[in-house]
């Protein structure tokens, strides 16, 4: 996992310390680089998200007719273009992972008991996986004018309407 250390020396250890049921010893060291990459990911995704989110807001709310142009057809038109599909996909994934990791960290900081921590994280990961998968599916399978649908339910720009 990591490169072997040059230094060969014993780390001083302490007696087990438990006061009123609270363990003050660290639960053992974790030789994982996950936290390091999570920290880096937060910074990198934050920078990219600034561009993506403000670009998204600018294109949707300012360009052309601005906010008045946003409707079902506007979204359908955007997702017919692979450029906006990729833009929205990247924005969805980065925003969800950035937010999920942020809340994971908050849970670690504020939940005092391990069981509380565990269940809050299960809830968090399930919810975020659901949103990521649903969003990804919608971006790629979105069909503004599904063939064979009831014409009265279709948007005004569809040929079958």
């Amino acid at each position: 996992m990591s490169t072997p250390l040059k230094t060969k020396i014993q780390v001083p250890r302490s007696r087990d310390l438990e006061v009123d049921g609270v363990k003050y010893n660290r639960a053992g060291s974790s030789r994982s680089r996950f936290e390091m990459f999570a920290w880096l990911f937060m910074r990198m995704s934050g920078i990219v998200l600034i561009v993506l989110v403000f670009g998204h807001l600018f294109v949707n709310l300012m360009v052309g007719e601005g906010v008045h142009a946003v409707d079902f057809g506007f979204v359908g038109g955007k997702w017919a273009n692979p450029f906006w599909q990729v833009w929205d996909l990247v924005m969805l994934w980065l925003a969800m992972l950035h937010g999920t990791n942020g809340i994971r960290v908050i849970i670690d900081d504020y939940a005092a008991r391990n069981t509380t921590r565990f269940w809050l994280k299960v809830l968090l990961f399930v919810a975020s996986a659901f949103v990521i998968l649903l969003g990804t599916m919608v971006i790629f399978t979105f069909e503004p004018c599904p063939a064979g649908a009831d014409p009265s339910l279709l948007a005004s720009f569809c040929s079958a309407h």
Binding site: S2, T7, I9, V11, S29, S30, R33, E35, D109
Partner: peptide, 21 residues
């Protein structure tokens, strides 16, 4: 000092520097 690599490894722990907010 020559044990910097080991100290960095210790502080790369889940409870190490990355918990600093």
């Amino acid at each position: 000092d020559q044990a910097g690599d080991m100290r960095l490894e210790i502080l790369n722990d889940k409870e190490g520097v990355w918990r600093c907010r």
